[in-house]
Amino acid sequence: MSVRADTSAAKPLRADAERNRRRIVDAARELFASRGIDITLDDVAAHAKVGVGTVYRRFSCKEELIDGVFEQRLVDMLENAERALAAEDPWDGLVQFLGDVCAGMALDRGLGDVVLGSDQGCHGIAQVRQRIDPFFAKIVERTRASGQLRPDIEVNDFYPILGMIGAAVEFSTSVDAQNWRRYFTVLLDGLRGDGVPLAELPGRPFTDAEVDVAKAALHRRRR
């Protein structure tokens, strides 16, 4: 007579493990969004209210956790790049893609770190980025060929440009989290190559008092 193994205890164990994994990923997502990826797995464990050992059993290093949180975000970015390349007007496609990236960075500080950072140890993110880069190169080449983008602008110029917007987001967030769009528009006008009229600036210049608030908040975040 065969004896069937009792698996009733294994199912709750697997369910608990999955719940813990979900809790860890959700906690990491919140911390990455507010503080960037320069946090520790101990920070994640504390925020998730689980033991540090639980985190290390699910993720052997922080890079694995970054992959788990951001790989899908980069897949979404790839889809945005595909739509931008298919846009009827090359300039509109470029602005659409850059605007989507910057809006994501404004909502999630960690995404900005991933976009502008290294893929070392983040194998899933690296694979998706290898698929995004050719699309973005084609977006830039098409816009330049149309005469709408300055002829001396290259693909790699956009990494410092995104860094500038990231700095504008960080500076503005304590006063008006959406006012980065004002400086985004200034940068776009500097990229135009066809002599079109300057775009109307969204947002507003900050008052002296608001500049002081923004400076103080920026100093606190960097201490």
Rank of each mutant, 00 (worst) to 15 (best):
K11W: 06
R131Y: 12
D189R: 10
A15W: 10
R182G: 03
A86S: 06
K62G: 02
E141Y: 12
V55F: 04
G53D: 02
P12N: 08
V95S: 01
Y56Q: 05
L31T: 04
R14Q: 08
K49T: 09
D113L: 12
A48N: 08
G117T: 05
L198P: 09
I139Q: 12
A126V: 10
G51T: 03
E88L: 09
N20F: 01
K138S: 05
G99H: 12
D42K: 10
A217N: 10
E63N: 14
R181D: 11
Q120M: 05
I37V: 01
A199H: 13
A145W: 12
A209S: 09
E30N: 03
V114N: 03
Q127V: 11
R221W: 08
K11E: 03
M164P: 07
P205W: 15
D119K: 05
D189C: 05
G53S: 07
R131D: 07
M164N: 11
V101T: 11
G203Y: 01
D194S: 08
N80H: 05
D89H: 09
R35A: 02
R22Q: 03
R58F: 01
A167H: 13
E71C: 14
S34Q: 03
K49E: 15
Y183P: 12
V140F: 09
E154C: 07
A15T: 10
G110Y: 06
V196E: 12
K49W: 06
W91T: 10
E154R: 13
R192Y: 09
A168K: 00
A177P: 12
T143F: 03
K138T: 14
L41S: 00
R73A: 05
V55R: 07
F206L: 15
I161W: 01
R144Q: 07
E30H: 01
A126Y: 11
I39Y: 01
L116G: 09
A145M: 14
L78P: 13
L162T: 04
M105E: 13
G147M: 11
P205C: 06
F59V: 03
T54K: 03
V115E: 08
E64K: 00
